[in-house]
């Protein structure tokens, strides 16, 4: 079946990357990119999609290309 754009969502590896960067806390990451800790929590839960600027800032903190931090994949259906 052909997939529509609505079947895709922005997925991120922030939680995993924080772990591999000396278990960086959500608060520390939030301070480094200039947002609140709640925004980082929302991002990790996949509830909030960041602006391009914030996405680049987060990638810069982890010193990785943006494509390694964020991807545009099919939504999990839960089945």
């Amino acid at each position: 079946m052909k997939k529509s754009m609505d079947d895709y969502q922005i997925i991120n590896n922030i939680r995993k990357l924080r772990f591999f960067h000396e278990e960086m806390t959500q608060k520390e990451l939030a301070q480094r990119v200039g947002v609140t800790r709640q925004t980082i929590i929302s991002l990790e839960k996949g509830k909030y999609s960041p602006s391009l600027e914030l996405a680049f800032k987060i990638a810069l903190v982890f010193d990785m290309p943006i494509g390694k931090v964020f991807s545009f994949d099919l939504k999990e259906t839960g089945s």
């Binding site: 939030a30 947002v35 609140t36 960041p50 602006s51 914030l54």
Partner: peptide
């Protein structure tokens, strides 16, 4: 207290 206002806010 953290008074940051970010893009989500």
């Amino acid at each position: 207290i953290d008074k940051t206002v970010d893009e989500r806010d």
